[in-house]
Write a protein that binds this DNA or RNA. Structure first.
Length: 422
RNA sequence: GCCAGCAUGCCAGAAUCCGGUUAAAUGGGGUCGCCUCGAAAGCGACUGAGUUUCGGCUCAUGCAGGUUCAAAUCCUGCUGCUGGCGCCA
């Protein structure tokens, strides 16, 4: 949610931002409703003020043993008026709320304007692309040949869009997760093991609801499976007022993530790229508004550093206004290289949401000038299956075995290779 | 899952039975100031939210409703916590 005061004062900036982001929202209508709402609210408060005054007068008269009949008669007319006004205020507030919650975050000035991923801006490229003397296999071939990824089994168990990691494949994924978590916690991040079933309030806070409900799995109890650990981590301090010295808060968690991927079929469905369930280590920062810009750079560098330690070629993009997520003001996507597909695949998305989520969650911190909204950031650090794709494909040898990156070897019991003849 | 009890500030806890002045007595904690070489103690101020023309006004006793001129207080539903029983990795 963006600040209604800001919309009031800068309607043209907001209109342009909304358009750049590919949304069609009637800002003038919102402002009209907002004006009506505030006028009506003031009138309602005046009525309530009168009611309070008369009630007190009645009490005083009764205490003095005098008759309050005429005052009570006057007072009796008020509840009906108040109720009517209240209904109107509630209606306007709801209308305002519905438009407000449909407005995406305002893009940062460094975000390229464009309608889709074509407009994304590459800001960094790292690593040497592997130059194989043989035809590199796809990750699904490697996975099958080495018996470490079993797609047929996952189809049998769950349908398409899932995976079974098996034997050293399962161990390798666990190695990645532990490596990521250890990297973050050694730098002082707080590791969290959160629920992966959450309520609608949490999903409203991080802005998956109400707009994107179709992307979520819903339980019969009315709760939802998390699409990312961003949801529980960011919502840890929903409806709280924090002390300034408690900021920043750095949270990390490993969780499975669940996405219906409604309407996405056809391309990119082969292998373990687009999935209904996948494992991810997430980073979430809650920080002082003055620091979020710097914190985003730091978060992005953490994700990049992980890839460098694994020696996986990547590139970093700033997403365009049309490609960015709803809650983000600025997003870096980090993409890892697939030698088989000869292209980069997204594996991390690091976003600064400013106070957009904090407003929805009502998470503030105390300052001398009153309570202010915090800023929230989230980023993958990192998503496991997509990293497995690049890890397997980049580290394959001619005989079909896989070199294990040095930093993962301690997590694999010292193993240096996953061998084909095994 | 069943039964019972409970839900007020940063914490503990009054007011609730029997509706009424201004919600928060009292204690603790915290912040700031005075005092001090410094600390402790002592003394003083501040310590729910929103809004404000800085006079105020509105909201706020778990949440949502109802009754009433008026609800922390009475009624209904829900949620959460605690205890007991049942089930259980």
């Amino acid at each position: 949610m963006i600040d209604i005061n800001y919309i009031r004062e800068n309607p043209n900036i907001v209109k342009k931002a909304v358009k750049d982001r590919g949304y069609d929202i009637d800002i003038e209508k919102l402002l009209k409703i907002d004006k009506d709402y505030r006028d009506e609210l003031q009138k309602l408060q005046e009525l309530k003020h009168r009611r309070n005054e008369i009630s007190q007068k009645i009490n005083k008269l009764k205490k003095q043993g005098k008759s309050a009949a005429s005052e009570i008669k006057k007072a009796k007319q008020l509840p009906e008026k108040i109720e009517k006004k209240q209904k109107n205020v509630d209606k306007l507030k709801k209308q305002r709320f519905e438009i407000e919650t449909g407005i995406p975050n305002l893009p940062d000035k460094t975000v390229p304007v464009g309608k889709d991923e074509e407009a994304n801006k590459e800001v960094k490229k790292w690593g040497k692309l592997p130059n194989f003397k043989f035809k590199p296999k796809a990750h699904w071939e490697l996975g099958k040949d080495l018996d470490i990824i079993d797609i047929e089994k996952s189809v049998k168990l769950s349908g398409s869009g899932f995976y079974v990691f098996k034997g050293l494949g399962a161990k390798l994924e666990r190695a990645l997760i532990n490596f990521f978590l250890d990297f973050h916690s050694k730098d002082g991040w707080t590791e969290i093991c959160p629920p992966i079933v959450v309520n609608k309030e949490a999903l409203f806070g991080t802005a998956q609801l109400p707009k994107f409900e179709e992307d979520l799995y819903k339980t019969t109890e009315g709760q939802y499976l998390i699409p990312t650990a961003e949801v529980p981590l960011t919502n840890m301090h929903r409806e709280e007022i924090l002390e300034a010295e408690d900021l920043p808060k750095y949270y990390t968690a490993y969780t499975p993530c669940f996405r219906t991927e409604a309407g996405r079929h056809g391309s990119e469905t082969r292998g373990i790229f687009r999935l209904h369930q996948f494992d991810k280590v997430e980073m979430v920062k809650l920080c002082h508004p003055d620091h979020s810009e710097k914190e985003l750079e730091d978060m992005r560098q953490r994700a990049e550093k992980l890839l460098e330690m694994l020696n996986i070629p990547y590139r970093t993009l700033i997403l365009s206004t049309g490609d960015m997520g709803f809650a983000a003001s600025k997003t870096y996507d980090i993409e890892v290289y697939s030698p088989y597909q000869k292209k980069y695949l997204e594996t991390s998305s690091c976003s600064n949401c400013l106070d957009f989520q904090a407003r929805r969650m009502n998470t503030r911190f105390r300052t001398k000038q009153g309570n202010k909204y915090i800023h929230t950031l989230n980023g993958s650090g990192l998503a496991a299956p997509r990293l497995m794709i690049s890890l397997l494909e980049c580290n394959q040898l001619k005989d079909g075995s896989i070199k294990i990156p040095k930093v993962l070897q301690p997590y694999m019991g010292g193993l240096k290779k996953i061998k084909a003849d095994k």
